[in-house]
Amino acid sequence: MRLSNIKQNNKETTKMDIKYELVEKRKEKPDENNLGFGNYFTDHMFIMDYTEGKGWHDARIVPYGPLSIDPAMMVLHYAQETFEGLKAYRNEKGEILLFRPEMNAKRMINSNKRICMPGVPEDMFVEAVEKLVKCEKDWVPAKEETSLYIRPFVFASESSVGVHPAKTYKFIIILSPVGAYYPEGVNPVKIWVEDEYVRAVKGGTGFTKCGGNYAASIAAQVKAEENGYTQVLWLDGVHRKYVEEVGTMNAMFVIDGKVVTAALDGSVLPGVTRDSIIHILKDWGMEVEERDLSIDELMDAARSGKLTEAFGTGTAAVISPIGELCYKGEAVEINGFKTGELTQKLYDTLTGIQWGKIEDKFGWTRKIDL
């Protein structure tokens, strides 16, 4: 890969020389009315390699397809792997917008550092996303509430058995046209409060977006589903007392008119949607508390009616109302199992910005030059 340095806004950035190997015949596009989530993938993917002493090299966009994996590839044995999730949106003008991709790039850098992997520079990450989405622009759905999900990931590709950082890695991006993450759509979900298993502890990898965190959550997710619940609300790993996050979302609770959410202290994922919602709430003059919230305080607030709304925030689901919590066999309903007024307003505002329907006063959206 040939790199060239250019200056943008007095800041030197690196431009990649991306090689293209395009398919001769495109796949048939899926029905935008029945996309689901993560069921279909576009014609191409982005791949870039890393070699110790050489850095990132050989950036390319190639046909989507299987990878050749050596049985001794280190990611299979020691789980050196991170990933990200963001979306591309088609607005009413037919333009394609990204939403805060630089935040995903920075989060991946932090995740990779914790897993002892090389970071993908922010400008290279964003350029790779833009070039692949531009190549696959016809895959960005136009139907309301749909988008193109973008999954960048990095993994150790060296073939070696032995616990140490790998010397080679791959950075890959794949794309998937999607609808709603939850079958319920923007309707309340039922959440199981987990008090047996632990997801993360301070000093661990809870703040990273790595596959190991999600693998550790599956047992609790299965248990929740067996009991009729959609997702798991995790408690802290030390005291089993303080509310942290839902399996695929950060969690927020409206208590006595204030929005309360877990602080970013190392065991909670720093969500891009979480950060965006906090910015919007503060812009509206609402008080947001990032603090320890015990499950006992939360359940007491629910019983007394002080907990008026609850919702999860994340790229995949955007905002998902929480209509019921179950802790130690006690189920409490929130807001009559209806989507709250604030929750709906936040959803409408954030998606309005993402789809370019309302003014982006925060400068979050990034139009792809087609």
Rank of each mutant, 00 (worst) to 15 (best):
L3A: 12
Q8A: 08
Q8Y: 12
N9P: 07
N9R: 14
E12A: 07
M16K: 13
I18E: 07
Y20G: 05
E21A: 14
E24M: 11
E24S: 13
E24F: 08
R26M: 09
K27P: 01
K29S: 05
N33I: 06
Y40P: 06
F41L: 01
M45Y: 08
E52F: 10
G53F: 13
D58W: 01
P63D: 09
P63F: 14
L67A: 09
M73K: 05
A79K: 06
L86V: 07
L86H: 05
L86G: 04
R90I: 08
K93P: 00
P101L: 02
M103K: 15
M103N: 12
N104M: 05
N104Q: 04
R107W: 11
N110V: 08
K113Q: 15
R114Y: 05
C116D: 08
G119Q: 04
G119I: 00
V126M: 10
L132A: 07
L132T: 01
L132W: 07
V133D: 02
C135H: 03
K137S: 14
W139L: 03
V140D: 00
P141T: 02
A142V: 10
K143D: 07
K143Q: 12
E144H: 13
E144W: 10
E145M: 08
S147P: 04
L148H: 00
I150M: 02
I150E: 01
F153R: 03
E158M: 07
S159L: 04
S159R: 11
S160F: 13
V161Y: 13
G162Y: 12
P165G: 10
K167R: 14
T168S: 15
K170C: 06
I172R: 05
P177R: 00
G179P: 01
G179T: 01
A180C: 08
Y181F: 15
Y182D: 00
E184R: 09
P188L: 02
P188A: 03
I191C: 11
E194R: 02
A200M: 09
T205N: 08
G206S: 09
K209D: 04
A215K: 06
Q221T: 02
V222K: 15
N227I: 00
N227E: 12
G228L: 08
Q231F: 10
V232R: 02
D236A: 05
G237W: 05
H239T: 11
V243E: 00
E244Y: 07
V246N: 00
M249K: 01
V254P: 00
K258E: 15
V260W: 09
D265W: 05
D275R: 12
I278F: 09
I278K: 07
I278P: 05
L281I: 03
K282V: 10
E289T: 10
R291T: 15
L293F: 10
L293P: 01
I295V: 15
E297W: 13
E297K: 12
D300E: 15
R303S: 13
R303Q: 13
T308C: 10
G312P: 00
G314E: 09
T315Q: 03
A317I: 09
A317E: 07
I322E: 01
K328N: 13
E330R: 06
V332D: 12
G336F: 09
G340V: 10
E341V: 14
E341A: 14
E341H: 10
L342G: 04
L342R: 09
K345M: 11
I353S: 00
I358T: 11
E359I: 03
F362R: 09
G363N: 04
K367V: 03
I368H: 08
